[in-house]
Amino acid sequence: MLELKKINAKVKDSDKQILNNLSLKINDGQIHAIMGPNGTGKTTIANVIMNHYNYELISGNILFDNKNINNLSTDERARLGIFLCNQAPTEIEGVSNSEFLRTALSSKTGRKVNLYTFIKDMEENMKSLGLDSSMMHRSLNVGFSGGEKKKNEILQLKILKPKFIILDELDSGLDVDSLKIVCRNINEYKNENSNCSILIITHHPKILEYIKPDVVHILDNGMIVKSGDLSLAYKIEEEGYKNE
């Protein structure tokens, strides 16, 4: 369960406040979607949850499984089981994909990773995502296409097995076929882990056809201005945000 309580947040070292008294509660097993036009603070929500270095929590509380995580570092939050699927995954030359994931997995479990099962697990999941297994040995995201980068994020998710998933603009950079593959993998994961919750961040309702949210929120100017069910998303699709 993740709860944001009256969050005010700004860009560090500036006066620019982005999130205004934002509250949101996502129960175990639920899927929520936050929609809103570009620049309203959607990615900032994800970054504040992950304690990104560019943002500062001015006031408010972030609870995960009823525990206040305000003072936890990014890696501590991740090890609790929060996973961010980035809007634009970072490229790191020289750090191989498999080395990265193996280190992440052993950090998460606190145990040395069995190389044989790890490689097998990785190969299986890469196949299911339509990623060539040679990408395991390539530098992290370097030279990956937009779609491959997103698939690689989902590969991490499937290996690391988080309890709470944030999908930031999952469909950007993905063609329709890739989007279907990625969403099928996420839905399978969700079915196997029914307690896992998902926060979908998107300015476009397309992805909600593939991963069906229980609750849809509309974000404007760093505030949730409306919440409803999936029909709210379809209404947005027809009328746009301005008619809200």
Binding site: M50, H52, Y53, S73, T74, D75, A78, R79, F83, L84, N86, P89, T90, I92, V95, E99, F100, L101, T103, A104, S107, K108, L140, Q156, L160
Partner: peptide, 18 residues
């Protein structure tokens, strides 16, 4: 880079080493 490594649970020491 540090943030990306941290955000999958890798602590600062291991991230720096990688």
């Amino acid at each position: 880079y540090m943030f990306y490594l941290n955000s999958v649970g890798i602590n600062n020491k291991d991230a720096k080493h990688l």
